[in-house]
């Protein structure tokens, strides 16, 4: 594997909440073009792992590298797009238009601000076009449907032209049809732009089609590897027998 292609590397990372272990000795490598699903039951540390990878939490031990750089020294945050779990549970009275949601992301980072200064508006419309919402530019975000809001947040993450997108349970509270559209969109971004995607979910069934790698987490990393091998892997079979309902059987 080319070192240049390694986007995120998690090395022997452990994390504790008030001395209760949440993650133990996690090793994980994410390569450019991956569509990785991190799955696991509630309380398995999925969200914690994602927060560690974007620097919101600091590991108790171990190291994290972003684009080959130690996370403490990493400054090129525009290369990373993050969509948090509660993204669409924002204050419903917050007065902000779709355009403002995206502009504030684009303009908060001096590096990209200068990069896109001359064609800022164009960038914003382009990113909205990627999620098919370019005609909703002036709408207040609270007037949009849950699925539309979720796509606006994708557009916000995309506007800085990131190389990786990390999403934490992005479709909580969105109806099934919108969910499927949403994951189709992610699949398209992954294939067409070779955008690396890391997705935390407890509902593996719905992302099944798009993912090429799976990390199975329960405080420790139970499985990490190619998707095709995943379902037949004995570890996972074991894991599932333990009563963890990883896969929903909607299909």
């Amino acid at each position: 594997m080319n070192a240049q292609d390694e986007v995120i590397r998690v090395k022997e990372v452990s994390f504790y909440y008030h001395s209760i272990p949440a993650l133990e000795n996690i090793n994980l490598s994410i390569t450019r073009g991956d569509f990785l699903a991190i799955i696991g039951p509630n309380g398995s540390g999925k969200t914690t792992l994602l927060k560690l990878m974007v620097g919101l939490l600091k590991p108790a031990s171990g190291q994290i590298f972003l684009f080959g750089q130690e996370i403490e020294k990493f400054r090129d945050w525009h290369r990373i797009g993050y969509i948090q779990q509660k993204a669409i549970n924002f204050d419903p009275h917050f007065p902000i238009s779709v355009e403002e949601v995206i502009t504030c992301s684009l303009n908060s980072n001096p590096k990209v601000r200068n990069k896109f200064k001359s064609k800022q508006k164009k960038r914003i419309i382009e990113s909205l076009a990627l999620v098919d919402l370019e005609n909703l530019l002036d709408r207040p975000i609270n007037a949009l449907s849950g699925g539309q809001q979720q796509r606006v947040f994708i557009a916000r993450a995309l506007v800085t032209e990131p190389e990786i997108l990390l999403l934490d349970e992005p479709t909580t509270g969105v109806d099934l049809k919108a969910q499927e559209e949403f994951y189709d969109l992610l699949g398209r971004l992954n294939k067409e732009f070779r955008l690396t995607i890391v997705l935390v979910t407890h509902d593996f069934g719905i992302v099944n089609r798009h993912v090429n790698k799976v990390a199975c987490l329960n405080q420790r990393l139970v499985y990490h590897g190619q998707h095709e091998e995943f379902c037949s892997s004995s570890v996972v079979q074991e894991f599932l027998k333990g009563g963890h309902h990883l896969v929903s059987h909607r299909h």
């Binding site: 620097g55 993204a87 502009t103 908060s108």
Partner: peptide, 20 residues
Amino acid sequence: NYQALIFMTFDRETALVSGV
């Protein structure tokens, strides 16, 4: 700091990740 202030007021966590 206008844009950064909007960002963090609207979505503190994402703003943090974006380097605000």
